[in-house]
């Protein structure tokens, strides 16, 4: 990389781009995007390999472990593989591939890692309770006017604004 980082895309243009990808998914597949579902497949496969009997007896993991095929040969798993490569392509073209801990100027890496881990855990838990995340519910369900998706989206913003003040140290 030359070290010059390109600015981010205009948010409205990036939104139109994302919206057209989502529309394309609906036209081609009849379904939208997702992310947390693919990571649930990964967790289910992990549990299956460590404790097969436990995984098979769970109503939750069983949904992600089809009997006759590889559980990772799944639509969302392939889609998230694409997300990873797509992110890599965009990051490389813009010169944004840098090994950093993204944090506020006064925050230490360990403080940021602690917030990231526990925040990630809450998010993983919340996405399962809500049957999807910002991709599978907010964007995908939002575009087809799903009541649950709009409820989820408003709750996400409410929850985040409510505690923003208390977790501000890592960003300042």
């Amino acid at each position: 990389m030359s070290g010059t980082t390109k600015p981010y895309m205009n948010p409205y243009f990036a939104g139109i781009g994302l919206g057209l990808v989502l529309l394309g998914s609906y036209v081609i597949m009849g379904r939208g995007l997702g992310a947390s579902g693919a990571f649930t497949s990964v967790v289910a496969v992990g549990v299956q390999s460590l404790a097969p009997a436990h995984a098979q007896s769970s109503e939750f993991y069983k949904e992600y472990l089809p009997a006759n095929s590889n559980p990772l040969k799944d639509w969302l798993v392939f889609e998230v593989a694409g997300v990873i490569v797509g992110g890599l392509i965009s990051g490389s073209l813009a010169g944004r591939m840098k090994r950093v801990v993204d944090r506020g100027p006064n925050a230490t890496p360990n403080m940021r890692f602690t917030y990231a881990f526990f925040g990630g855990a809450l998010m993983g838990f919340g996405s399962k309770l809500a049957r999807g995340c910002t991709s599978g519910q907010a964007l995908t369900g939002g575009a087809v006017l799903s009541v649950g998706s709009w409820t989820f989206m408003i709750a996400v913003f409410a929850g985040a604004y409510a505690v923003a003040y208390f977790v501000r140290r890592q960003w300042t």
Binding site: K128, R131, C133, Q137, A155, A158, G159, V163
Partner: peptide, 10 residues
């Protein structure tokens, strides 16, 4: 789930 997710997000 959305409220928990939002807390996790920020």
């Amino acid at each position: 789930g959305g409220l928990i997710f939002g807390v996790g997000f920020v």
